[in-house]
Design a protein around this nucleic acid. Structure first.
Length: 595
DNA sequence: TTAGGGTTAG
């Protein structure tokens, strides 16, 4: 392969090398990086060192870039150190290499060293430095890079400005991101993407959508980046119809074949309860990246199809795609929800073969799996033996299952462990309170809630919503603010009688307040999901499934009640809670009561 | 002219 390269066996200095040859070497280094032929690049490196060509600055820079693109940052650094004449391009190459290869601190350190040598950062170096701050979520350092950009006058550059917008967005500083965005003399699609991402990150989905609309209005050439972001915004707000319209725009502009767009679309359909849509997008995406595989696995897991998850995992392996920790998390959750304990344990152990260290979330899934099967002691053993510190989610998994299995002693132990971790999320206080309440110990239960109040936190309000055309109808338990409230409550009363005739009995143990029986029954009768379903019943035609989204977990009584609702009305009712889907049909739920 | 900024899946 090297035969046609210059034969320079005895190069004393760079000057003895014919000029036209080193350009050829540079081309070859670049193409090796692009085609990911690392071995060819390494051969070329050996050759240029031997022939003395590595002394030529252009060749040295190309070596740095070759290693950077080959994801070998430390070799890139070595090539940088061997480079005799370091221009600002040389510095730029090595700093961008660190920024792109998960060494943001080193990128910033090299910027410092460079400036100590009295070199000023330029418009190529500043974006890499800014990006590093974004990766580290270090707004403070990012601000000093911003100052540096202003001092050097590069803050007006569209690359520098866009990277600053993105950095502020990644650090969660949406106000500074917007200020930067507004002040920029020139903006392009990257600037807009960064800003949109910022809003989406902060959960300001409406602002993100507004910005996208504005971008379209300004005739900005939106691309696959923009589409995948905006679709994920729709997915997070479960705006199926809007998402479908944007998918139409993607098809028109031929961006629908992008695997990034595909991943967002799979997630959109999945989160909106349309598994068939997710499958179709997945099948039609020509080149599948890890993201779309993971999105598809998650979709099947959310829809309780563990068999398909395992099948997909095997298919994925056959296609040569390497699973990552997210892949395994999806597989474990699928096994957990399907009650496949042995399979779950198998996949947990399989992670070792792929040299993937289980995170606290993987352990939480395993603990939950064991806990659901009633193996509380074994679950505890997993926690005490795990090599990383158990987090709230791990102890929480044990706590919830102890409550369900009425082991209040172990539940209290798990709760103590959670408190030892320091700040506890509000949901966890509720879990402890539930543990006592389920055992009839209302005083302790109240104490746990008091602790929550003392910390100035409140339980997240349970909300359910239904999408009707492009409108979202939201309901909270017991409220009567909706314009059709009267009809909704009438429908519930009428349905309640039918359900009771069919054998439904309200399970009041899910009401946590210590009140008398009648009031308990009233509270539980009007949980938000029941109101939302009643709205669906009086609004949608009989053949249309009723899709309800809920921000919290469905309570046990509602879960049971909805089964009866599906029998009495003959409707398909799909409820997405904060975690997964429940498809109710003919008195059965797709989760097999395992949720 | 070799170097720079933005996406998905969790």
């Amino acid at each position: 392969m090297l035969n046609h390269l210059p034969q320079g066996n005895d190069p004393v200095s760079a000057f003895s090398v014919p000029c036209h040859n080193y350009h050829r070497i540079c081309d070859l280094l670049l193409s090796s990086a692009r085609s990911r032929s690392t071995s060819r690049g390494l051969q070329l490196h050996g050759y240029v060192v031997k022939s003395g060509l590595s002394l030529i600055p252009l060749v040295a820079n190309n070596l740095i870039n070759f290693y950077s693109k080959s994801q070998l940052p430390l070799d890139s650094r070595r090539a940088f150190e061997d480079c005799p004449q370091k221009s600002s391009t040389t510095w730029s190459s090595v700093i961008s290499c660190f920024a792109q290869n998960e060494l943001p601190w080193m990128a910033l350190e090299f910027l410092r060293i460079m400036m100590e040598g009295n070199l000023r950062p330029d418009d190529h170096i500043l974006p890499s430095a800014t990006k590093s701050c974004g990766i580290l979520s270090r707004c403070d350092i990012g601000k000093s890079v911003h100052c540096l950009s202003m001092k050097t006058g590069y803050d007006a550059d569209v690359f520098v400005g866009s990277s600053l917008v993105d950095m502020y967005a990644k650090c969660g500083d949406i106000v500074d991101a917007r200020n930067m965005f507004d002040e920029m003399p020139q903006r392009n699609v990257v600037t807009w993407s960064g800003m949109m991402y910022g809003y989406a990150q902060m959960g300001e989905n409406e602002e993100a959508l507004l910005l996208f609309k504005e971008a379209l209005f300004e005739n900005l050439a939106v691309n696959d980046y923009s589409f995948s972001s905006v679709i994920s915004v729709c997915a997070n707000s479960t705006l199926l119809e809007l998402g479908r319209q944007i998918q139409g725009l993607c098809v028109k502009s031929s961006f629908d074949s992008s695997s990034f767009v595909g991943s967002s679309l799979v997630s959109l359909y999945s989160k909106c309860g349309v598994l068939e849509g997710a499958c179709q997008v997945f099948d039609e995406t020509p080149v599948k990246n890890l993201g779309i595989w993971n999105a598809m696995l998650k979709a099947c897991a959310q829809h309780s199809d563990a068999k398909k998850v395992i099948q997909l995992f095997k298919q994925m392996k056959r296609s040569g795609m390497k699973p990552n920790f997210i892949t395994f998390l999806n597989v474990l959750n699928a096994c957990n929800h399907a009650g496949l304990l042995d399979e779950g344990k198998y996949y947990f152990d399989l992670m070792k073969e792929y040299r993937i260290e289980p995170t606290d979330k993987h352990y939480a899934s395993l603990v939950d799996m064991l806990g659901r099967a009633g193996k509380l002691e074994e679950a505890l053993k997993v926690i005490t033996n795990m090599p990383i510190d158990p987090t709230e989610s791990v102890w929480g998994a044990l706590l919830t299952n102890c409550t369900n299995h009425k082991n209040t002693e172990l539940a209290a132990f798990a709760a103590d462990k959670v408190f030892e971790l320091g700040r506890v999320s509000s949901g966890m206080h509720i879990s402890l309170s539930n543990a006592y309440a389920a055992d009839g110990r209302f005083k302790d239960s109240a104490e746990a809630r008091k602790l929550l109040r003392d910390r100035g936190e409140k339980k997240e309000t349970g909300l359910s919503w239904v999408e009707e055309r492009n409108k979202v109808h939201t309901f909270a338990a017991g409220e009567r603010r909706h314009e059709r409230s009267k009809e909704i409550y009438e429908k519930l009363a009428e349905l309640g009688e039918e359900m009771e005739k069919a054998g439904y009995v309200a399970d009041t143990s899910f009401v946590l307040r210590e009140v008398d029986g009648d009031e308990k029954n009233q509270t539980i009768r009007y949980h938000s999901e029941k109101l939302a379903i009643a709205f669906g019943l009086i609004t949608f035609s009989a053949d249309r499934p009723i899709r309800v989204i809920k921000n919290l977990r469905v309570c046990g009584d509602c879960h049971n009640a909805i089964k009866f609702m599906s029998v009495c009305t003959g409707r398909v009712i799909i409820v997405r809670d904060n975690n997964r889907f429940h498809r109710f049909e003919n008195g059965k739920c797709s989760c097999n009561d395992y949720w």
